[in-house]
């Protein structure tokens, strides 16, 4: 009896997984069709004869607009922003977890408050400040904030992790005369791989997918990241569904790789610590 219900639930899980997978499967099928095929083919099962599969759609998609350039731009922004996030949020998290300093509890309360503060609301005044600094049409507004603590949530993740590190780890280094920096760099960072992995993955995905900020700050389309670049496919004359699907699928590969590589860190860290509201 118990075994049978167990099997029934597995069937449900598989069905849900198939439903979740369906949009991507359709996008992949559509990306390989001639354009008129998508519009006229009746709702019949996916045809398997390879003759009708147009792999050249992918080549067309990346050459119709400077898509490789968009990919490169996204890689640059994402890499620099992610390095900044990991570095600064771990540093600040360390100070909140292991150091004593005046105003710490007040600052921690402010940190928690900013975690719930909506980013989009700051859009216009932030834009004015960055414009005043001459940063519009550069990548600075997209990268520099990550070097200034990143996001409150990431600081919080690092703090929770560093707090769980036994005092004895640190004491050994302290007796040898290590400074705070050395404790952070040589004791804490080497053992925090799971948190670094999780924060790096979430930050990378976030910056790869970011849309509003690059839309507001960049006007030269050669500087566009993938997210804003994809929008140009949408407004392309004739709405080439197959090319849009091809470009979209290419844009999804990097986040997919990131989450596959880091899924065990993500599963372990995010859910477990996140809801400490």
């Amino acid at each position: 009896m118990h075994l049978r219900t167990g099997r029934a639930w597995t069937v449900v899980r598989v069905i849900v997984a198939l439903i979740l997978f369906m949009p991507l499967a359709w996008a992949f099928w559509a990306s390989l069709q001639p354009i008129d095929e998508i519009f006229t083919a009746p709702a019949e099962p996916i045809r398997s004869d390879a003759d009708t599969l147009q792999w050249q759609n992918y080549a067309t998609a990346v050459t119709r607009l400077p898509f490789l350039r968009f990919l490169l731009n996204s890689c640059l922004i994402t890499t620099l922003a992610t390095i900044g996030t990991v570095f600064s949020s771990s540093l600040v998290g360390f100070a909140f977890a292991r150091l004593q300093w005046r105003g710490k509890s007040v600052c921690f309360a402010i940190l928690l408050a900013t975690m719930m503060l909506p980013d989009q609301v700051m859009l216009i005044p932030q834009f004015l400040i960055f414009e005043h600094l001459g940063w519009v049409n550069t990548y600075k507004p997209l990268i520099v904030p990550s070097w200034l603590g990143g996001s409150a949530f990431f600081i919080f993740l690092f703090r929770q992790f560093f707090r769980s590190v036994p005092r004895s780890y640190e004491d050994a280094a302290r007796i040898d005369g290590a400074t705070h920096w050395q404790v952070y760099r040589h004791v804490m960072l080497p053992i925090s791989r799971p948190v670094i992995g999780a924060v790096a993955a979430l930050s990378a995905v976030h910056h790869w997918q970011a849309f509003l900020d690059p839309l507001v700050y960049l006007s030269d389309f050669h500087a566009y990241p993938v997210s804003v670049g994809l929008r140009m496919y949408q407004s392309m004359e004739g709405s080439w569904a197959n090319l849009i699907m091809a470009a979209s699928l290419i844009a999804l590969v990097p986040p997919l790789i990131v989450v596959l590589l880091t899924q065990r860190y993500l599963m372990r860290n995010i859910g477990v610590r996140r809801e400490g509201l």
Partner: peptide, 20 residues
């Protein structure tokens, strides 16, 4: 982990897929 994957894919690309 499997059910989590679509979450990280959400962005302009998936919006365009849903658009079609």
């Amino acid at each position: 982990a499997f059910y989590y994957v679509p979450h990280v894919l959400s962005g302009v690309a998936t919006i365009l897929i849903w658009w079609w």
